[in-house]
């Protein structure tokens, strides 16, 4: 089971390494969406600081949805997903491995980019630190919950838009706690409470989402 998990992760990382354009797209999307905000709302540092947490988090949600469309679609098209589901290994492990790989490809680079964007938004260093921590705890939620949506919308027409409709409302707690942590630091209240709640939500998703994703894959591929 452990070996199957590692194989799934390694396979996805290898595929991503061979096709750099694919995963870099969502990272650049993240940067671009964030950069549009100062152009839209004005460059006043005071105002930018106030909205930074929310803007970065919303951009992260959208970027994750962009990359999630591909999570199972390619494997579904070339038939390898069906083969993996036919293997004696539980679909839960497959879903978990896919989510971990997605996080390594999508979430981890985001943690590197976010501090730079935080500087552009005039965030003080402690708020930038909190932003990175909140993204570190929160982006696995995006990969896990998004996996459910990706599995449900597998092979449907308008899958990308549909995925957004299904999953964005479910992301709300992650957005509130994640952006709330940054705001909490800015307001001088500390971020422990929000980060703890975000961690609890992540734990719940880690427990339930791979299981639901596995069931959804079986429904969709059947």
């Amino acid at each position: 089971m452990w070996r199957f998990l590692m194989t799934v992760i390694r396979r996805d990382l290898l595929l991503a390494a061979r096709r750099k354009g694919d995963w870099l797209t969502s990272q650049f999307f993240f940067v671009m969406v964030v950069s549009m905000f100062p152009l839209g709302i004005g460059a006043d540092p005071e105002q930018l600081r106030r909205v930074a947490g929310g803007v970065l988090w919303v951009a992260a949600l959208l970027a994750s949805l962009l990359s999630l469309q591909r999570l199972y679609a390619d494997d579904h098209r070339d038939g390898s997903l069906e083969q993996m589901l036919l293997s004696p290994q539980p679909a839960l492990i497959l879903a978990l491995g896919k989510a971990i790989a997605h996080w390594l490809i999508f979430g981890l680079p985001l943690l590197v980019i976010a501090p730079l964007l935080g500087l552009q938004f005039a965030l003080p260093p402690d708020a930038i630190g909190t932003l990175v921590i909140s993204l570190a705890i929160g982006t696995p939620v995006l990969s896990l919950l998004g996996g459910v949506g990706a599995a449900l919308t597998l092979g449907l027409r308008g899958g990308g838009t549909l995925l957004t409709l299904l999953i964005l409302p479910l992301y709300v707690p992650a957005l509130i706690f994640g952006a709330g942590a940054v705001d909490g630091v800015l307001a001088g209240m500390g971020a422990e409470a929000q980060l703890s709640l975000l961690g609890a939500f992540m734990g719940l998703c880690l427990l339930l989402a791979p299981w639901v994703t596995g069931a959804a894959l079986r429904v969709s591929v059947d």
Binding site: V148, L170, V172, P173, F177, L197, V212, V219
Partner: peptide
Amino acid sequence: AGALLILVGAVNVPIIYFSVTW
């Protein structure tokens, strides 16, 4: 597929309500 989504939503609704209150 709809049933799975509804059940995921049902688990999430109390969390959403709680987080929004917060």
